[in-house]
Design a protein around this nucleic acid. Structure first.
Lengths: 163, 163
DNA sequence: GACCGCACCGTACACAGTGGACGGTGAGGA
DNA sequence: TCCTCACCGTCCACTGTGTACGGTGCGGTC
């Protein structure tokens, strides 16, 4: 019956294991904790939440100020979440607009190409320090070094591209 | 007027610079040449192509067997493509279901976690050799080593995750 | 050379994900 | 007290994904 969660709502359920949260808090938490390997937009959260509530995986709390609704996982929600954890994982997925343009390098002039790469590099370096900060802040020990690794890769990668 | 291409149709235009192709060939070419940093599905190609034709960026050839339509870039298409090349690039994007699950490591039992990681690792290693082959095959010199780098990162990454 | 099974190409559709526009509302400053 | 502004939630249009379906010509078999 339980029609198998999609990854995004599963992620929401997972985050809610830490306690009740409103939509806005969920968005923030997702960006912070999952941002580097799973993107979640506001629109999505606000669409999924009522749906989850509809299937009883999540329960609404008393509305707070500015009509904000705290949500919390139900027992059914926890069950669905752990079920999802052991489901087979889909393929990775990545879309990199810089690389896409670089892939058509033959049609660029050299100046353009150089600018493209150096911009990307500086952006990644910025992201790296940001992630380092985040990791330092929440040293829960739980896999957050992933983010760091990812960002570091980003830099190494672009640097390699420079040849 | 030219309402600025989205990245996917730009990629199609780029591929068509190498000569006329049918939808199927485009899908194949995209998988081969852009697959590791930009995904393109059949559904998308067959939706974009008529749209591009509608805005005159692409021209239809004589229908071949099995009602296949070869498309080729028009002059306007080439202009639109080079314009797109110098547009600002959007942010990278990546979704990694394995990492997502790993991020909730606290709720796993250890066996599950181990299996997850080792599966992912072997899959990435497989992908790596595949890419190596591809690179060897088309040593055009143009940026295809990107793919290799990406795949190699994948392995290094997962290995690091193992700790 | 005729027939048939099958893979492949294109189509269609439902759903997931993205980004921008909009509007209400409450918190904080003048 | 009033105003401004940022933030939160809603909405919508468009892009991206996966799957199911059906026709059609290709290759194999006899």
């Amino acid at each position: 019956m339980t029609t198998s969660l999609n990854s995004t709502s599963a992620a929401l359920l997972g985050l809610l294991h830490d306690g009740p949260m409103t939509g806005g808090q969920l968005v923030a938490a997702a960006r912070e904790r999952l941002g580097s390997f799973w993107s979640v937009t506001r629109s999505q959260v606000y669409r999924e939440l009522p749906a989850l509530a509809g299937s009883g995986l999540v329960r609404l709390g008393k509305p707070g100020p500015r009509s904000s609704q705290p949500y919390s996982v139900t027992a059914a929600g926890k069950r669905a979440f752990t079920a999802w954890l052991s489901e087979p994982t889909g393929p990775d997925q990545s879309r990199n607009p810089v690389l896409l343009r670089l892939g058509f390098g033959a049609h660029h002039d050299v100046g353009q190409l150089g600018r493209l790469v150096s911009d990307a590099k500086s952006e990644h370096e910025q992201a790296l320090t940001l992630h380092r900060d985040a990791v330092a802040r929440l040293r829960k020990g739980t896999g957050e070094s992933f983010a760091l690794a990812a960002a570091e890769f980003g830099v190494a990668y672009e640097r390699a591209v420079l040849k």
